[in-house]
Design a protein around this nucleic acid. Structure first.
Lengths: 202, 202
DNA sequence: CGTTACATGTAACGTGTTACATGATTCC
DNA sequence: GGAATCATGTAACACGTTACATGTAACG
């Protein structure tokens, strides 16, 4: 009762994502794992350890219930569903504004020490990284397209709202990658072009 | 010799950031800690544990040397400097293109389950989060401005290049937050405005 | 004389990752 | 019979965070 597990004030996003998915429909840990690792903006690989621990925790806190499904087809599984308390917790979490996430870029860390490179190495770094960003953009575009095709056909308003949110999120991810590409191109020019003016080239 | 510590193939960014800073000038762990936590795009809080462990590791690998400065002024400190091997390692790391970092947004996770909220709660979520993003933008602008003032006066080309890189990085961070604000505004409109058309409002 | 800054480290804790262990069923 | 999929879990490991422990020296 007074256990105070330390967690749960903080982010604990995976548990909440699980709660959100269970709110849509009851599922087994295995099914959750697949969905979580499939949807990129859940930002989790959805590995076993995490999921099963979180499910035990959610059950422990009274936010989810398990009903054992014995050998219907395939191996026996525990199907979890959300409880009324879980639904309240979910609502409270979704409605509480999160902190602005620090935008993390490994490329920034490299570029911060670009002065140790020769001009040609820097050029190659930019080229290789730009290619990777282009690949990411292609992936994000594909995902966005697939989702638009799949999600537009919702009838009930709850699902329509969810679909529009998901589409917006995918769109924002795509926009962010596109901004990064634009920034890369202009930065590369501004760093490399002016040097050639006064280098032993002409 | 055949120790194979497991690390060092992967990112290990903090060690490399330390190496990059030591390349600029020899420093103590304490000084490194301060710089690393001050520069936002090193993406580390620079806590003790990390720094001192990394320094021991760098020394262990022959990438950094320590010279003990006994009681000159203040407490005695170990001043680390980069070795030739460390300089090679740094160059190799900076020049190797990193993977595109996953863009992480806690807000996305919340928005993904926006269907559990009432319209007004969603409105409030957007409002509160937008305010936070605005604050971040102000911070990023201030940082960018401070750096431009401070960094423009470099004379040697190495430092000029470094400064231009840092400015670009800060600019990209600012652009990313600004994109997020634009996206928030348009998403909020598209999610909330069309609903009012067919709600019990008129 | 107390607080702040300098300075180095350790310990406990939470959490994520990879890999392992186990076992049933379906498809070829 | 072997591979793939469904299904649940544990163990070892890496890493980051917070807090703790210790001590000097300058500032007011």
């Amino acid at each position: 009762m007074d256990q105070s597990y330390g967690l749960w004030e903080s982010e604990m996003s995976i548990s909440h994502v699980i709660l959100g998915l269970l709110d849509q429909k009851p599922m087994s840990g295995y099914a959750l794992k697949k969905q979580i690792s499939d949807v990129p903006f859940f930002y989790s690989t959805g590995n076993n350890n995490q999921i099963y621990k979180a499910l035990i925790d959610l059950h422990h806190k009274g936010f989810a219930e398990a009903t054992v499904q014995q050998k219907e087809r395939g191996a026996s599984s525990k199907v979890y569903s959300i409880t009324p308390a879980g639904r309240l917790e979910l609502q409270s979490w979704v409605g509480s504004p999160p902190e602005v996430s620090e935008f993390y870029s490994a490329f920034h860390q490299h570029l911060a020490f670009a002065n140790v490179l020769y001009e040609q190495q820097l050029e190659e770094l930019f080229q290789a990284y730009e290619e990777e960003v282009r690949t990411q953009i292609a992936v994000a575009k594909e995902l966005h397209k697939r989702f638009v095709n799949l999600g537009a056909s919702a009838t009930e308003p709850q699902l329509r709202l969810r679909n529009r949110c998901w589409e917006s999120i995918l769109q924002h991810r795509l926009q962010t990658y596109e901004l990064e590409l634009d920034w890369l191109k202009s930065t590369r020019q501004s760093l490399l072009a002016p040097e050639t003016e006064k280098k032993k080239r002409g």
